[in-house]
């Protein structure tokens, strides 16, 4: 089975069916509550933006979706999150498999101190997704193309990934994430460390990526949420205040806190 032939459940599912369903998700750090019962459905092959003032729990929720919170010993997660109907917090789940299907792009570009090629090839290599060098080359090229980076780096694949500009580094990280063909890509404020031109490129990329992947993006920029997302969820002080189609939420917020936030009165 090669990567290209592999069909994820997402691609078979009807467009509006929820890919991820979170039910009553609560998180506490050493007894201090960070999220109080979040219910959210994330639609397949759409972009869902999580917005809200800093400290509202949006990143915490994002990190629940691929269980990155497991890395924090004091973090305690209750409730359920399902991916294609399978509870990701079920005891028999292996987080490595989950994370292979749910990729992540971080706030600050974090390319490994390796070559551009090795950065992208990292995931396929550890998961054994390519059986020979040609296949791996193909995966690397395809991933870099999808991340819109191929034309800029094709002649220097052996150069260190850390030598790229910030925006290029972030696209390299996106290429690295999609090289293992995840179903979902989580993005944690992916543009917060980038200049406006690099940001525009990433946003454009997100548009292209949603044809294949379900994307959840945390952003503190409402403009960005409005530009890139189909659905938006507004978090405030650990609660999910309002969710819905982005256009509706921004033009006609139902909750006064949402309205206050998008009009710039809190945040």
């Amino acid at each position: 089975m090669t990567v290209t032939e592999k069909k994820t459940a997402d691609q078979q599912a009807p467009a509006e069916e929820p890919k991820i369903v979170a039910t009553n998700v609560k998180v506490s750090y050493g007894g201090r509550d960070a999220l109080h019962g979040i219910d959210l459905e994330i639609v397949a092959r759409k972009v869902t933006a999580l917005i809200g003032p800093s400290g509202c729990g949006k990143t915490t929720f994002l990190r629940c979706i691929n269980r990155m919170n497991d890395l924090i010993p004091v973090a305690e997660v209750t409730g359920s999150i399902t991916l294609d109907g399978n509870n990701i917090y079920a005891p028999e789940v292996d987080v490595e498999v989950l994370r292979r299907h749910v990729g992540m792009v971080f706030q600050k570009p974090n390319p490994f101190p390796k070559s551009i090629y090795d950065n992208v090839a990292y995931g396929p290599r550890i998961h054994g997704l390519a059986s020979n060098k040609q296949e791996l080359d193909k995966i690397v090229e395809k991933s870099l193309r999808r991340a819109g980076l191929w034309d800029e780096v094709s002649d220097r694949l052996e150069a260190p990934g850390t030598g790229l500009s910030g925006g290029q580094q972030q696209r390299l990280c996106i290429a690295r994430a999609i090289a293992i063909e995840p179903a979902v890509i989580l993005m944690d404020e992916p543009c917060s460390a980038l200049d406006p031109i690099a940001t525009a490129k990433i946003e454009e990329l997100i548009h292209e990526l949603k044809e294949r992947y379900t994307i959840v993006i945390v952003t503190h920029s409402m403009q960005q949420a409005a530009r890139v997302s189909d659905y938006t969820a507004f978090f405030h002080l650990g609660d999910l205040v309002e969710k819905g189609e982005t256009e509706a939420l921004f033009t006609n917020p139902k909750d006064e806190r949402t309205e206050a936030y998008i009009s710039g009165r809190i945040g």
Binding site: N66, M68, L71, V95, E96, V97, L98, R99, R100, G103, M104, F106, K108, N110, P111, F112, P113, K114, Y122, G123, I126, H127, C173, R176, A177, I180
Partner: peptide, 27 residues
Amino acid sequence: VPSALREGSVGLGATKSETIRRVVLPA
């Protein structure tokens, strides 16, 4: 070695020892 590198590797589904051997120690 910044934890961002560890997270980057773990986020791709690497095990802890894979992260240490392939990312942390080379760094």
